[in-house]
Every structure is written in structure tokens, then in C-alpha cells.
Amino acid sequence: MLNVSGINAFYGKIQVLKNVGLHVEEGSIVTILGANGAGKTTTMKTISGLLKPKEGKIEFLGEDVTGLRPDQLLRKGIALVPEGRQILAGMTVMENLEMGAYHRKDKEIEKDLEMVLARFPILKEREKQLGGTLSGGQQQMLAIARAIMSKPKLLLLDEPSMGLAPLVVADIFNIIKEIRETGTTVLLVEQNARQALKISDFGYVLETGKIVAEGSAADLLTDSRIKEAYLGVKS
């Protein structure tokens, strides 16, 4: 579904991604692991169009989408829940959800809204409240719910569990599984490597801007190097 190859991306003169390539199969969950500063967010920004790569190619559903803007990519079916959630703080919970469906013209928006509010009762309770007044966990729920309202084919999630209590983290991972069950493909960046790999089909490991390992999630979970570096297990 998504084919990224030979990406070289820069911030100014500093090269952050070096020949990054990855592949996401339709209907799967794929995780990108990596230490702080490895380039995970930069990879997500590049795929969602926030950052234009200097070199390389991004193919989505067989079409070359390299260099398109985020709003154009969303219309093709790629949505990003960015790191740090980025909800619209000065707009209400309901308006945030409506903005999720901004690009849609189909007749199912109302139905999806009801579905999302039923899945996230806390958002329904607070629908008139300003987004900025929600707690961190609630904001993350809102960010994910808003992305669901965009009805993407491929959902990019950049550290959705960052800074959340363990119970909420478990809930987030459940939601990700549910999203996949509704037919949406997921590309995930996570620090909770073990939990992420458990729900994933495939994984990549990024180190200082390069892909250094890849494999099925099951293989990565038992790989001794990965265990030591990312799963906190001494071998």
C-alpha cells in the first residue's frame, strides 16, 4: 500500500534521514522503533507531506505521491496524528471532530460522528468544552478520534502513548487494534516497543536516520539485539 524508498531528508543543511525505505502492507500494523532523535518523527512528517524529502520516492496505492502537500495527501487517504497531539486548543471538542471530516463530502459523516462519540464517551461528555482544557490523555483520544473522522486508508500515529498513564496506554493500543479491524492500515511510531510490537505485523528499527533492522514483529520481539536496545532486556 505504502512504498517509501531512498529518502534523504534535511532540516536546513543537517541530513536527518539517510536512504530510508519502508513498506506497509494493506491491512497491517507496522511499527517504527528507534531511540530519541533517530528520525522517527521526521519519517512521519515526510510521509504525511509536512516535510519535502530532498531525494527519494513515496508511493501510495501505486501512485507517486512524493512532494504533495498534507491536505492533498489526506485526500488520497493518508492521515497523521502528530507527535504531541496538536489538537485545536481554541476550538471545541465537537469542532475538532468536525474538522476531522473537513475534506469529506460523503453522507456518512453524521453516522461516523455518532460512532466515534459512542467509542469515546469522554469526548461526548465534553463535546462543548475547548480542546485545550482536556487532560493529556483526553487530548490524545481526541486526536485519534479526529483522525478516525478523516476516514483515512492509512493512519500514521506518532507516539500516541507518550506521557500517558499505563491504563490509558493499554486503551490506546486497544483502539489501534480496533482501527485496523475496521480496515484502516496503521503505521505506528512508539517508545513502548514491546506493546507496539505485540499488536504489529511488521517492524523497522531506525538509528540516526538509517533503517538498521527490519522483520516481522514476532521476530523482532525475540531478536536479542532488539531486546537489549529497545525492550529493556539484558541478554
Partner: peptide, 23 residues
Amino acid sequence: KAGKALRAVAENLETASLLGVDT
């Protein structure tokens, strides 16, 4: 819808464009 999109652009350019708004 357009008015809300404008407010989204005012609040955060990147978020608005990720939501499909031609900023």
C-alpha cells in the same frame, strides 16, 4: 465549515493542513 477551517488555520497552520485545509 469554511469559517471553522479559517479558525483552524489561525490556530495552527500545520494541524490545519493535516486536516485537509488548503492553508
